[in-house]
């Protein structure tokens, strides 16, 4: 699998043969389809005892150019969930605006009703969308856009709590493929961060035994490995911890205790020793 967002959603040459671009010559049918332009790299997240830790660096690349170094790719929804965005930044911004509208609509329903006085949990808010609901919604949105051949070129991680108050972590990509797991990572992170996180949380039970400190430590370690190895990454990143108390988001973290000593020992592509 190729982890660059540019590769997502493109036909494989080894399956389809080299791409025939001749139809691009002129006119032709309208194509709403795009390819990503300014992109964000990995998002990593892991569940723990009381919630979820999620992180993404603050870089938006233009191809190999580190174009914007202060782009926040974690977004808080209704103060209870976090969405992390990998892939195209303009599509991320569109989704951000869209989620804002959704949050506003949802808050209109938040008026306390007469029955809220006699209900079991008075004035708790009128059915706020939790992370599990948001995940379903975003999956439908992404899948619809792929059906229209006008995909949003992103892979999203959704972190928060479900209806039972248990930690929820899930992913949706540009084709509407959705799944959940004790730990998740998009892009390069799927190859570099996911093995590290799976060592600490191979199963739901193992994740439910992790403490907050451990989970944050694992995510920080992942961000460091990604910065060492992913050429489209940055050492400034955002990290959020989602619990039932709410979201603690830090958007200007610096990678600490870096050591590039290993770099001197690298020769060739791994097998070379001289």
């Amino acid at each position: 699998m190729d982890h660059r967002p540019q590769a997502w959603g493109r036909p494989r040459d080894d399956v389809y043969g080299a791409y025939d671009g001749s139809y691009l010559q002129s006119g032709g049918p309208k194509t709403a389809t795009q390819s990503p332009v300014v992109t964000g790299t990995s998002v990593v997240a892991i569940k723990y005892k009381d919630g979820v830790v999620i992180a993404a660096d603050n870089l938006a690349s233009y191809g190999s150019l580190a174009r914007f170094t202060d782009v926040k790719r974690l977004r808080v929804f209704l103060g209870t969930s976090v969405v992390g965005f990998g892939g195209d930044v303009s599509d991320m911004q569109w989704l951000d605006r869209h989620l804002n509208e959704l949050a506003i609509d949802e808050s209109y329903d938040d008026e306390p009703s007469p029955s809220s006085l006699l209900s079991a949990s008075p004035n708790k808010g009128h059915g706020k969308l939790n992370a599990a609901n948001l995940h379903v919604y975003l999956q439908k949105l992404m899948y619809r856009r792929r059906n229209d051949f006008d995909p949003l070129w992103n892979q999203l991680l959704i972190a928060g709590l479900d209806a039972a108050g248990k930690p929820h972590l899930s992913s949706v990509d540009l084709r509407g493929t959705a799944f959940t797991s004790p730990s998740l990572a998009t892009g390069f992170g799927a190859a570099l961060a996911q093995p590290i996180m799976r060592r600490h949380a191979p199963t739901e039970e193992a994740a439910a035994a992790l403490t907050r400190e451990e989970a944050v430590g694992v995510v920080q370690e992942c961000m460091k490995v990604l910065y060492y190895r992913d050429a489209r990454s940055l050492d400034r990143y955002s990290i959020a911890v989602v619990t039932k108390e709410g979201v603690e988001l830090k958007e200007d973290e610096q990678l600490e205790r870096q050591s590039w000593a290993f770099a001197e020992r690298i020769k060739g592509y791994g097998t070379q020793t001289v």
Binding site: R10, L24, S35, N147, P151
Partner: peptide
Amino acid sequence: AREHRFDPYT
């Protein structure tokens, strides 16, 4: 001109 094609399947 950039390549324009999206593969909706995987």
